[in-house]
Amino acid sequence: MKKVFITGIGSGLGRAFVNIFLENGYSVYALSRHLPEDFKDRVKFEKADLLSLENIYRSADNLLAGVESIDLVILNAGLLTPLKDIHDTPIYEMNRMMDINVWANKIIIDYFIDKKIKIDQIVAISSGASVNGNRGWHGYSISKAALNMLVKLYSREMENTHLTALAPGLILTPMLEEFVLRADEEKFPSVKRIRQSPKMSPEEAADRIFRLIPKLKEFESGSYVDIRKI
């Protein structure tokens, strides 16, 4: 049975990922703050708040002790806070986004390397915000740009693993609805474009990504890939 490791499965895209992989016969390992009721006894789960960097390594070890190989790792967990100008965004708020969007992933990848767990493919969920620099996206854009580089750097060290930083397109998640679609479109022009653009449900996005995962290997390991351009 193939194995997949996923972070952030409580809602949105992460929850949809679990469903699609279970439907396709995968054994699912998950680190997340929440385990939805319908996943109980169906996934191997360890509760973890990825803001608590000092606990992530131990949580990963509790979950994966004895596991020698994993077919696919999806680093999905991410944090966005309300849109605002970067001048108005305090460092502590941006640090929280860096912790979850970048450093938590470093700790997890380091764990795999330290424990010599064989990983065939790693997909880190990035964002178009990592490259477009739209007003209002402050620490989220910075952290996702850093995630892209983190993936590229690890690709130079993990010669037997294929890594991708994947922008999944516009997905109607609770995070998008709360922090983006309610924002001021006059002040932040990207909001109007996002409101007017077609958006996938988490289930549609998870299904599309699942089908495209093998195709990601056609790109150089360490690449940033926007799903809308595949």
Results as ranks from 00 to 15, higher is better:
M94P: 01
E46M: 12
A167N: 07
I6Q: 08
M98S: 04
K118H: 03
G222L: 14
I6H: 07
T81L: 14
S127V: 01
N105A: 04
P198I: 08
I194P: 02
S223C: 06
G66D: 12
F39L: 13
S197E: 10
G8S: 09
P174I: 01
T7S: 14
T173D: 03
S155N: 11
N160L: 13
I171L: 04
H87E: 09
D110R: 15
K192G: 04
A48Y: 04
Y29T: 11
S201L: 05
S27C: 12
M94R: 09
L79P: 06
G133T: 07
E203P: 00
F219E: 12
L147N: 00
N24W: 03
L51P: 06
E159F: 06
V151H: 01
G222W: 00
E93H: 00
G133C: 10
M158E: 12
K118A: 12
S130R: 03
E157M: 11
E159Y: 11
I100M: 04
A165N: 03
I213R: 03
E23G: 08
F21S: 03
S223Q: 02
R228F: 04
F219R: 11
P82V: 08
I109M: 14
D38T: 07
I171K: 00
T81A: 13
D99Y: 04
G8N: 11
S130A: 15
V102E: 09
G25I: 05
K3Y: 12
V28T: 01
I56Q: 00
G139E: 00
G12S: 10
E220R: 15
S223V: 10
K199E: 04
I6Y: 07
G8P: 08
N95S: 13
G222E: 09
L153H: 12
D38V: 14
R58C: 15
E178L: 08
D88L: 13
N76A: 02
A48W: 00
E46S: 06
I70S: 02
T161F: 07
I74L: 13
T7Q: 14
F188M: 01
I86F: 09
W103E: 13
G14Y: 03
E46H: 11
F39N: 05
I70Q: 00
G136S: 06
R211N: 05
R182L: 14
S59D: 10
P90W: 11
P82E: 02
M149W: 00
N134R: 14
V180E: 01
N132S: 15
D49S: 15
L64P: 02
K118Q: 10
G169K: 07
K187H: 05
F5I: 04
I213Y: 05
H87V: 12
P202E: 04
G222K: 05
I125E: 03
R33Y: 06
V180S: 07
E37S: 07
Y92Q: 13
L31I: 09
E178M: 15
L53W: 04
T161C: 08
M200Q: 12
S52A: 12
